[in-house]
Amino acid sequence: MTADGNEAVDIPEDIKSMEFEEALGALEEIVRNLESGQVSLEKSIDIYTRGTQLKAHCEAKLKDATARIEKITKSGNGSLSTSPLDSE
């Protein structure tokens, strides 16, 4: 398990090289396939596993983006401001 309570997932190199949008699209396709009920049990297990890898990759990309945004978001006096992006 990781520090945030999630299970650690080994992410294959082909997924690590994906941009966030590409990985998200692949994950959405997996969800559609699983929801269709037209996939064999063995194939469902395989694509579910890949889905967990894609999800972990997307979460890591989002966490990294959030950290980078927090680093560059400064208040008027130069101190770091970490307010949510959707706050106005």
Results as ranks from 00 to 15, higher is better:
Gly5Ala: 02
Ala23Leu: 03
Lys43Ser: 01
Ile69Leu: 06
Ile72Arg: 13
Ser44Trp: 05
Glu19Phe: 14
Ser36Tyr: 15
Lys74Leu: 14
Asp86Gly: 00
Val39Phe: 10
Asn33Val: 05
Ala8His: 13
Lys63Glu: 10
Glu59Asp: 12
Phe20Ala: 00
Asp86Cys: 09
Ser81Phe: 14
Asn77Ala: 02
Ser83Asp: 04
Cys58Pro: 06
Val31Lys: 10
Glu7Phe: 15
Gly76Ala: 07
Thr52Lys: 07
Ser40Phe: 11
Ile45Ser: 03
His57Asn: 02
Asp46Gln: 13
Asp14Leu: 03
Glu13Arg: 09
His57Val: 00
Asp4Gly: 05
Ser36Lys: 07
Lys74His: 11
Thr82Asp: 12
Leu34Gln: 04
Ile47Thr: 09
Leu62Val: 10
Ile72Ala: 02
Arg50Leu: 04
Leu41Cys: 03
Asn6Lys: 14
Arg68Gln: 10
Asp10Gln: 09
Ala26Ser: 05
Leu80Asn: 05
Thr66Arg: 12
Arg32Pro: 00
Glu59Ile: 10
Ile47Gly: 01
Gln53Ser: 01
Asn33Ile: 02
Lys74Trp: 14
Ala60Gln: 08
Asp64Asn: 03
Ile11Asp: 01
Leu54Phe: 14
Ile47Met: 06
Ser87Met: 12
Ser36Gly: 09
Cys58Val: 09
Ile45Ala: 03
Ser44Tyr: 05
Asp64Ile: 04
Asn33Met: 11
Asp64Val: 06
Lys16Phe: 07
Ile11Cys: 01
Ala8Leu: 05
Ile15Gln: 03
Glu7Tyr: 15
Gly78Arg: 08
Met18Trp: 12
Ile45Cys: 05
Asn77Thr: 11
Ala8Asn: 07
Arg32Gln: 10
Asn6Pro: 03
Ala23His: 04
Ile72Pro: 00
Glu19Ile: 05
Gly76Met: 00
Leu54Lys: 04
Ser87Val: 13
Pro84Gly: 00
Glu42Leu: 11
Lys16Ser: 05
Ile72Thr: 11
Arg50Pro: 07
Glu22Ala: 04
Leu80Cys: 06
Ile30Val: 12
Pro12Phe: 06
Glu13Thr: 08
Ala26Leu: 07
Ser83Trp: 15
Glu7Pro: 03
Ala56Asp: 08
Ala65His: 15
Lys43Val: 08
Asn77Val: 12
Ser36Gln: 07
Leu80Gln: 14
Ser79His: 13
Leu54Met: 06
Gly25Leu: 07
Leu85Lys: 12
Arg32Ile: 01
Ile69Lys: 10
Ile45Leu: 09
